[in-house]
Each structure stands twice: as structure tokens, then as C-alpha cells.
Design a protein around this nucleic acid. Structure first.
Lengths: 351, 351
DNA sequence: ATCACTTGTGGGAGCGCTCCCACAGTACCT
DNA sequence: AGGTACTGTGGGAGCGCTCCCACAAGTGAT
């Protein structure tokens, strides 16, 4: 009789059916208890729970996924090479935030890199197979086809930084514009006059917003806004170093720098050192992210804190709501689908 | 009629059955084609493949998992806090190696942290639910209960560093003993006389073996083996710093240091700098892992390279073999289940 | 012509769940 | 007394696969 069932089974895991028999109830009732349905009497619930405990029952995920047409898994997709992921604390901080937000859930988190074409290909197959209920998209560039693919496959998705002001996907972001203003206003308040900016990758919307904030803060304070003081970077350390060197060449009189990320600031610091400038005596330096790097830099780096933990939680909340709302004919209100969280300036010795 | 099927379905993914109808064959035949069975005629195979392409058929993972009692997923379990994972390149290098080895497979890789009790709890549930076919265990401490849990659940597992010489699990490791000898012999060859060692966490077997290699290399060369020259570290940067400071205090005459990891060496470098020692003029420094840190250190760090890429591949090979061998009554030969890969000394300016 | 294999194929049964319909029981109105 | 509603429960049907048995057709030895 067990001809089929014995196949590959290890130690005979108990099934719903067995739990039901043990508790003297039907299959449906056990299912309701397992899934926390309120439509179960207290007595029955207790009996089922006892049977579950005695048998050491654990639901079979595959069976559940098949029957319910969901996977209870979501993917965190990083459209960058792995090396970048490990080099930039932004990503690991985000991962931690998301993980924390997910830890009171049944949901499983998958980390997927999509930096190379090869990985992209794999990801596409992965999504086509609907192996996740939803997707978290981190740091997407302006022309990335991923978001479109997702909406075509009707897979719920939340993006960590919107691609533009007209983002159609649900999104969570920190107030890049305001954060940049905080940084620049801080430098102005410290008496700095010639404030440069090393940008992030400009195909990332948030990086553009930081440039806007930088410009507006200067203008509003009646300071000069000189394009020679703005040099594009790419969020990397090397990019920061190169940009700083270029800025020193062009405007050796600068007395402050606002870098679009802490890692960029670290690169800038090297270039400043190489040029014999002291921080903060000669040049004040402010970063963005308030990552571990900022605290450990020498001197410790003033930085704009993004509430990554909260951002992670917000993304999860949005995504889970979207996943749940796959019920027929419910079309959520589109408001509140674009969340912007406030930043905070953390002052340290570098400015 | 579609009352059930329509539930939550998005756009009606085609099923095996539909592909079969389209190709004018039976369900079994399509399944055989999908799974690459050789028992299919070329003509039939071509017809099925055409139907698959036309319909855009993608197998339903959940159904397959349920029917075949496998998940096509394996977990990389890191029994450390996340912060450690990101701080120590060993882990990310390992992840990259494993990922590469897995990329020509259908297998999915899950990254699971089990640093805190909470995470441990989650992991236990996860494994009890048999949500993965096998487990890769990285950097396990001597008294960790995880391996026992795995064998109790009969989940195939491979461990990256054996817990002892009598490891029962399949394991892959680099030649820690030999690598340490290489490092020390190199320093001796450079004319260093008083060679200290900062160890790794001594509840990690590999760290002990490095101490053994260090001692034996010194003894065989007729050098002094002084316990005052050995200071325990914990693979972290801070640990390296503290250990170096302690060593300088005890044996200010030392002229070389072999650190159990590159990160440890980075900490030691700081302490040496703080004490005004020049590298390599006053003190030669050798690390272990040959991670990115070694190349970027100032001065670049001589280090013992572990073939992480190959180690990852070896782990995957062992694990997949073990997973496949879940067939009844096949008990593999136990030889070749403990693999040890050779290390290589990479000389740089620090020594 | 018979037997013994081999090769390719179809399709039934079953994996362990969830969903939902049916129905018994109870409660509270008319 | 009958209706209407709700609560709790059992179990059939079905999710989309894989496994395996059965069997047709072909091959080659006797």
C-alpha cells in the first residue's frame, strides 16, 4: 500500500490527515487551526494543538504552495554585481532592515543578485516560474527593464528608490532632497563658503534629488552655485577618490564637500589626504547613509542618516499588503503607495 | 467549472497537461522531456519542445516538489551574526564560490543566518519542515548542535571546516596546517627570528591546525617556540588589534607576525602603527585568506590563499552527490568525503 | 513462428495540502 | 410553529506534477 508513499520519505513525517485522526476531527478543522482561522471552538483548537505537538507535525510547504497557489516567499533583488553589494553598506543595512521586518512573519526572504546578464537570465526564469509571491527591488537604475517585467508577470513589487517622480510601482524612499539640504545647511552653518558636491550615479533618481537639494540649499542661503563644484561619482570609493581629485584640481579653494554616500566620502578623504588637506580644518566632509564606515572613519564622518530599518519595514508592509490584495476585484487606493521617510543629520568630527 | 482553478491565477499559466495536448502526446512523455530523460524519441522530443516554446510553459515548482518530494533548494547556513558575515570576506568569498558552482544547476541557494537564538529557532523550524534538500555549513564551532540536528533530521549536509579530526559529516577544508607552515617558513626564509602568531577562534578546528602548523614549522627550523609569542584572536579586526598590542607588550623584540586571517592582520597593522613599528621594516606581517583586504592594505599584505572558489565547488559536488544518493539502501563509500585543498602563499610588500 | 528483450509511450494513482459546499446545531427573531 | 441567521465542522475535489505499471511495437535469437 505504501508503494508510492515510501518513495524517498525520511522517517515518515506526519500529515494533516494523521493529526486530524489523532485529534478526532476532520482535515478541514486541522487546517483551520494551523492557519489561525477564528472559526474554531476553543475546545477543538486545544485538541488539535495537542495532537500537533504529540506528533511533531510540521506543514508541508510544497503541498500548501500547490493548493493555495502561493509560495510564502519574497525576493530581495539587487540589480548589481555581488561585489558592489558587499562593498556598500547600504545594501547590507537594507538587508538587515528587511530581514528584521520579516522575522515576525512566515515569509521567507530570498536574496537574488542580478548584476550580470547571466544572472538576469536566471532571474527572469525564476520570476516566470512564480517562485516568489513578491519582489523587493533595491537601487534600480532609470532604464532598468526589471520593473516592467514584474508588472507584466503581475508580480507584486516594491522599489526602494523610485526611478522618477512618476514612479508607478509602490515605492519607499528617504527624503533625498531634504537630506541633502540638511547636509549643506549644516556646512553653511559651520561657516563654510565653498561647498562642493560629489554626486551618486545620476541614473539613480535619488542621486539627482540630492543634487537638487544641494543646489537649492546653496541658492536659498545666497551662496554661489557653481557647476565646477559638482562632480559626478558613482557611490563607490574609487569614484569618490577620482571625483575629489578632479574637484581639487578645478577649485582648489573649496572648503567643504558633501558626498552622496559614506563610501564616496571615504574615497574623497583619501584624495584629500593625498593632497595634504586636513579634515575638518581645511576641508569639512559630510557623507550620506550614516553607515558603519562613518563611525569608524578617521576622523569620524558627519553623515545624513536614512532610517534604513524603518524603510525595510515599510517596504515589507507595502509588499505584503499588495500580495494580500490579490483577491478578486480589490483595487487599492493608490495613495500611500509612495512613502518618503525623513532623514537626520548625525554630526561628527569631520565637519 | 473553473471555480477552483481561477482562484488567484494570474493569466492562466499553462500546465503539463496542456503542453501534452498541444504536442499530441501523453503527460508522462512531456514530463520525461522536461526532465531530460533519454527514453524519448527524437521526433517526440522535438514536438514537445515546440509546444513548450509556443505555450511558454514553465514547470510549477510547488507541484514538482510535492510529487517528487524534493525542493531543489539548498541552504548555506552561517552560524554567525550577520554583521560578522559582512565584515569577514571569507564568508562572501565562500558565497561567491558556492554560487558559481551552483549556477549551472537547477538548484536554488538560500542564505540563512543563525547567529542569534531567535534565528536558530527559525532555522530549526525551517529544517524540520524540510524546506531544503541539503545544507552547507560554514565555519562551525566545536560545540555547535547544528550538525547533530541535521543528521537527526536525515538532511544531507557538508561542512566547510570540520569540527575535529574525527568529523562525521562530509567536509571540505583547505590545508590549514600546511598553509600555516607556508606562512611561517616564508617568514623564516626572509630572515625573521622572532615570529609571533595571532590565532583565530580556537573553538574552530581550522584555527587550531594553524597553530599546529606554526609551531611545527618553527620547531622543524630549529627556532624557538615560545607560548608568549602566541596570542588568541577571534578572526575579527578588533581581536587582531588587541592581540597585537598584548604581544608587543610581552615580546617587544618580535620581528614578524603571522595572523590567522587578513582581517586580523588588518587589526594587527593598526596596533603596530600605533606602536610606531614599520611594516615590513620592523615587523613583517602575513595574513590568511588572501581576501580583497590583503590587496588593498597599506602595505599590501602577504597572505595564504585558500582556493575558495574550488572549495565552494567541492562542497556543492559532495552535497549534490549526497542528495542524489538518498536512494534506498545505497550507502556511499565514506572515503573522499573529507576533502582537503592545498593553499598557496601570495607574497606582497608586508613581508 | 515463438520467445525474450528493448524502446517508447499513455495514463492512473498519489503527493499533502486548501478551498468551499453541505449540513448539523444553536440562537433569536417573527 | 416557522423562518433566518450564524457558528462550527466534515470531507470531496482539485492544485500540477512524478512515478510507475501496462502495453504496443520493434528487434533479434532460437
Amino acid at each position: 500500500m505504501a508503494s508510492h508513499g515510501a518513495r524517498g520519505r525520511s522517517g515518515g513525517r506526519p500529515t494533516l490527515e494523521e493529526v486530524a485522526a489523532r485529534a478526532g476531527v476532520g482535515r478541514g478543522t486541522v487546517s483551520r487551526v494551523i492557519n489561525g482561522s477564528p472559526r474554531v471552538s476553543d475546545a477543538t483548537r486545544a485538541a488539535v494543538e495537542a495532537a500537533v505537538a504529540e506528533l511533531g507535525y510540521v506543514p508541508n510547504t510544497a503541498a500548501r504552495a500547490l493548493a493555495a497557489n502561493r509560495t510564502d516567499a519574497i525576493a530581495l533583488v539587487v540589480p548589481e554585481p555581488e561585489t558592489r553589494f558587499f562593498a556598500e553598506p547600504y545594501f547590507s543595512d537594507m538587508l538587515r532592515g528587511v530581514g528584521a521586518a520579516l522575522s515576525d512573519t512566515q515569509m521567507q526572504l530570498l536574496l537574488i543578485f542580478a548584476g550580470s546578464d547571466r544572472e538576469r537570465q536566471r532571474l527572469a526564469e525564476y520570476l516566470a516560474a512564480h517562485r516568489v509571491d513578491g519582489v523587493l527591488l533595491v537601487s534600480v537604475h532609470a532604464d532598468d527593464p526589471l520593473p516592467d517585467m514584474l508588472s507584466q508577470l503581475e508580480i507584486p513589487a516594491v522599489i526602494s528608490g523610485p526611478r522618477s517622480a512618476a514612479e508607478t510601482l509602490a515605492s519607499v524612499d528617504s527624503d533625498n532632497y531634504g537630506g541633502a539640504r540638511q547636509a549643506v545647511e549644516h556646512l553653511i552653518g559651520r561657516g563654510r563658503r565653498t561647498i562642493a558636491h560629489i554626486t551618486g550615479r545620476l541614473d539613480v533618481y535619488g542621486a539627482q534629488r540630492r543634487v537638487d537639494g544641494y543646489r537649492d540649499a546653496l541658492r536659498d542661503a545666497g551662496h554661489e552655485v557653481d557647476d565646477l563644484l559638482v562632480e559626478p561619482g558613482d557611490f563607490s570609493e574609487d569614484g569618490g577618490r577620482r571625483a575629489m581629485a578632479a574637484l581639487l584640481e578645478r577649485r582648489p579653494d573649496l572648503d567643504a564637500v558633501f558626498a552622496a554616500s559614506d563610501v564616496t566620502a571615504a574615497g574623497a578623504r583619501h584624495a584629500l589626504r593625498d593632497a595634504g588637506r586636513r579634515i575638518p580644518d581645511d576641508v569639512a566632509l559630510v557623507g550620506y547613509d550614516d553607515s558603519a564606515i562613518a563611525r569608524h572613519m578617521d576622523p569620524p564622518l558627519t553623515s545624513v542618516r536614512q532610517p534604513i530599518e524603518e524603510m525595510g519595514r515599510a517596504m515589507i508592509d507595502l509588499l505584503l499588503a499588495e500580495v494580500a490584495d490579490r483577491r478578486p476585484s480589490v483595487s487599492r487606493e493608490l495613495e500611500r503607495r509612495q512613502m518618503v521617510l525623513a532623514t537626520e543629520l548625525v554630526g561628527r568630527a569631520s565637519s
